[in-house]
Design a protein around this nucleic acid. Structure first.
Length: 151
DNA sequence: GCCAACGTTGGC
DNA sequence: GCCAACGTTGGC
């Protein structure tokens, strides 16, 4: 079973549409300069799924992406101390789920999006994942087949 | 644009 | 190793 995450980005810097435009080859999730966020990325495995959240503008979960490359040095960081994973877009939310929607749902009161607002890469529990998917009208995630987990 | 929250830095 | 100062993030 894949783990679940949430990736935050300002649409001005890197939007969902930009990730979609990258297609199957995806894009390195660069620019993270926070230890907790880096540790989360280090814990990711190929095939893990993540929400794509637009901060600042929109403030909503707009799509689902998939980890396609394990943590590796961030090319945008000269020191070599920071890392990034590679992600690709999987599918958009039929209906985006806003921060207000998340806050209004008691089931999501413990979500990192609410409790650790400023963390840019966050873990999401299976229950939270299901609930946000339900709110966004996501039926089933058509995940790319992964050799390791499939029988 | 403002400001609260929070992470990081640096003096001691 | 503590803690005040500072910078950044991100909601409003």
């Amino acid at each position: 079973m894949p783990a679940y995450w949430l990736f935050k980005s300002e649409p001005d810097a890197f939007s969902w549409d930009m990730l979609v435009a990258k297609g199957a080859k995806g894009e390195p999730w660069t620019g993270v300069r926070n230890y907790q966020a880096r540790n989360n990325m280090r814990a990711m495995k190929i095939g893990d799924l993540g929400f794509f959240y637009h901060s600042n503008e929109g403030k909503d979960v707009v799509g689902i992406c998939e980890v396609i490359g394990l943590a590796h040095p961030d090319a945008t960081d000269g020191t070599g101390a920071w890392e990034c994973v590679d992600v690709k877009a999987v599918q958009p939310f039929p209906k985006s789920v806003s921060l207000a929607d998340v806050k209004a749902n008691p089931k999501l009161a413990k979500m990192a999006l609410v409790t650790s607002m400023r963390l840019s890469v966050q873990p999401v529990t299976a229950d939270e994942w299901k609930e946000v998917c339900r709110m966004g009208g996501v039926k089933a995630v058509k995940q790319a087949p992964t050799k390791s987990t499939k029988r």
